[in-house]
Nucleic acid binder design. Structure first.
Lengths: 223, 223
DNA sequence: CGATTAAAATGACTCGCAGTCATAAAGTGA
DNA sequence: TCACTTTATGACTGCGAGTCATTTTAATCG
């Protein structure tokens, strides 16, 4: 009796069709200008149906956030499988994040929006937001693991608390990627345009700075 | 003939009355739930009048952002007058930013919203947003100055490009303050709650990390 | 196969708000 | 007091999020 399963599958399929449509519309006109009507049209469904799958427009946008964070975490997970030193792994994770932002600025925008909503009651009731939180936890755990590997193989200073340090790295890297994101097409951020700073160089500076801070004595590259 | 001046003054006064009212309403219910009608009531003016002073609800919120950034910059400016080493100044600026966020989370929320709007056309036409950009430039220039002071007095490694480094510091500090902000009342950020990390300690770690990265050789505090 | 019931989809409708604009009031100057 | 300009008003419009009574589709059973 595979009927239940088939129904389940069809439900997931519809869910994905809707999120696909939402991405098309929201990525092209922005969350504020996008309307549920248009997303419904794009998905070839009625507006009402959208509300059978998502509690609100915001939750639908959260589903997009979830997709982005899934993708990012998959990349992180893959990198952790590689055979690198802990310090290299930490750098690698940072670089993957940056690449992701450059490659998928629309998902990053969704991340930003999700964060700016973090004090809205509505979020807490949403399963989808719950999964986003789970992904955040996982991402952080990847960094912690990389740090622990580094402490074992001697590339990272073992006097740090890996959990605290992971949070510091996560947060500060997020800041750098935000700036990189805003350097992109169509953002109003004058100073960034005027100082003709290359964001690649910016990120390299950042990594060098951090590396020298977290590396164990013998692995610091001092001039 | 002080009539023109008086009119000017009255205009500014009304502007401030409106922004005061907007703060009351928006800070208490959030930008999405706040209505222009209610802000008008709070300001004891009609809704139409609000639109004589602000192009849109978003621009009104931008005016709040401007107030916040003015306040922050004033604090920065004051600190730069103090007699500190460059390295200490850089740390001081970071700490001032953090204190500001803790003291005025609502302004910081406005900052976040302003950033998440940076790709909306509308912003570019707004004088008020222009002043926000000017403030960003000024804030960055404070950091650059602190770095230059440090390079002169020998507390900061002079091999860095101060402008690039300033941007790195600005961006990464922003990331840390964001996390600190989200640790506060009513934010949905599970990992942060579960790991019972103190944000004060987090910031200290961050500062220590950076300091060891940017300090000149003789000013590093190695164990 | 109908017939019966359950589940999913629909789109017309409500409601609330951002933003407008014709009208009114207040201020200015002669 | 009148003519004219500037500022304020709130009724009004348009639009879009979210709802829900109704219809359509699909599963279940005799």
């Amino acid at each position: 009796m595979g009927i239940e399963e088939r129904k389940q599958r069809e439900k997931e399929e519809r869910y994905n069709v809707i999120v696909d449509a939402a991405e098309k519309v929201i990525f092209s006109k922005g969350i504020e200008q996008a309307t549920m009507q248009e997303i419904a049209r794009e998905a070839e469904l009625s507006k009402g149906t959208l509300y059978l799958y998502f509690k609100s427009k915001n939750e639908l946008y959260t589903a997009i956030t979830l997709r982005g964070s899934d993708m990012l975490n998959r990349r992180f997970a893959r990198a952790l499988g590689d055979d690198h030193s802990g310090l290299e792994l930490v750098r690698k994770l940072g670089r993957l994040y940056l690449d992701f932002v450059k490659e998928h600025p629309d998902y990053f925008k969704a991340f930003m929006h999700y964060e700016s909503m973090s004090d809205v009651e509505e979020l807490r009731e949403s399963d989808i937001a719950g999964q986003c939180e789970e992904n955040r936890r996982e991402a952080l755990s990847f960094i912690i693991r990389a740090l622990q590997i580094g402490m074992q193989d001697g590339t990272i200073d073992e006097r740090y608390d890996p959990r605290e340090l992971a949070m510091v790295l996560w947060a500060s890297t997020r800041g750098i990627t935000t700036v990189t994101h805003m350097k992109g097409e169509g953002h109003y951020f004058r100073v960034l345009d005027e100082m003709e700073i290359d964001t690649g160089a910016l990120f390299d500076s950042y990594l060098a700075l951090l590396s020298s801070g977290i590396a164990s004595g013998k692995h610091k590259k001092e001039s």
